[in-house]
């Protein structure tokens, strides 16, 4: 199959993006070619602009274009509750819940398969915030897998040194799920994590 060189290059670049396979890359490339030049320029500029102006907040690690980020600046937010997440994407999901505390993002794909180690995790900014004494509770919003478990144990150790309460997100039956159809493991976790009403 023959592609014009510039088109081939565009397809190759698009294919490097996550979840984009060869077919999708080809479809996107052809779509871009059909789009008016002005629109394409806007897309290209938006990519460059976002890349050059967005950076992790020096205080919480969430993505921002001003430092500290609007969440850290927001005086109405509860400074006593700190939610720790692995990725900025997790914060976006948690924000949608209406959570009104503050955040700390580890900003690190913690992956032992990828030859990472806990020692390389930058938790200095987290410790700085714990030292001030304004944080009363740390919520560990980590994924319920092995890596999440390793991280949770490690961070719980760090947080406990400052005498701050640590909690972890509950796992159990999803909203709208039926007990009858839940597997034994999920149900067991849900029973363990039950609460008074």
């Amino acid at each position: 199959m023959h592609f014009a060189r510039p088109l081939e290059k565009l397809i190759d670049e698009l294919q490097k993006l996550p979840t984009i396979g060869p077919k999708t890359a080809q479809r996107l490339a052809l779509y871009i070619l059909k789009t008016p030049e002005e629109e394409v320029r806007k897309l290209a500029e938006a990519i460059i602009d976002a890349k050059s102006r967005v950076f992790p907040c020096s205080r919480c690690g969430y993505l921002t274009d001003i430092d500290p980020c609007p969440i850290c600046r927001d005086e109405k937010r509860d400074k006593s509750i700190l939610c720790v997440a692995e990725e900025a994407g997790d914060i976006i999901a948690i924000e949608r819940t209406g959570f009104k505390g503050q955040y700390f993002v580890l900003n690190k794909d913690f992956n032992l398969m990828g030859h990472d180690d806990l020692g390389s995790l930058n938790i200095k900014p987290l410790e700085e915030r714990l030292k001030t004494g304004e944080v009363k509770e740390v919520i560990l919003a980590l994924n319920p897998d092995i890596d999440g478990e390793i991280l949770a144990r490690f961070l719980a150790g760090v947080v406990e040194k400052y005498g701050v309460k640590v909690t972890r997100l509950a796992h159990g039956i999803p909203v709208g799920g039926y007990i009858e159809f839940a597997d034994e493991i999920t149900l067991r976790r849900a029973i363990e994590g039950r609460r008074e009403i």
Partner: peptide, 15 residues
């Protein structure tokens, strides 16, 4: 891995 990372290993041992 080349060097043994004690911090991670301690946690893994617990689990």
């Amino acid at each position: 891995k080349e060097a043994i990372r004690d911090k991670t290993l301690n946690i893994l041992d617990g689990m």
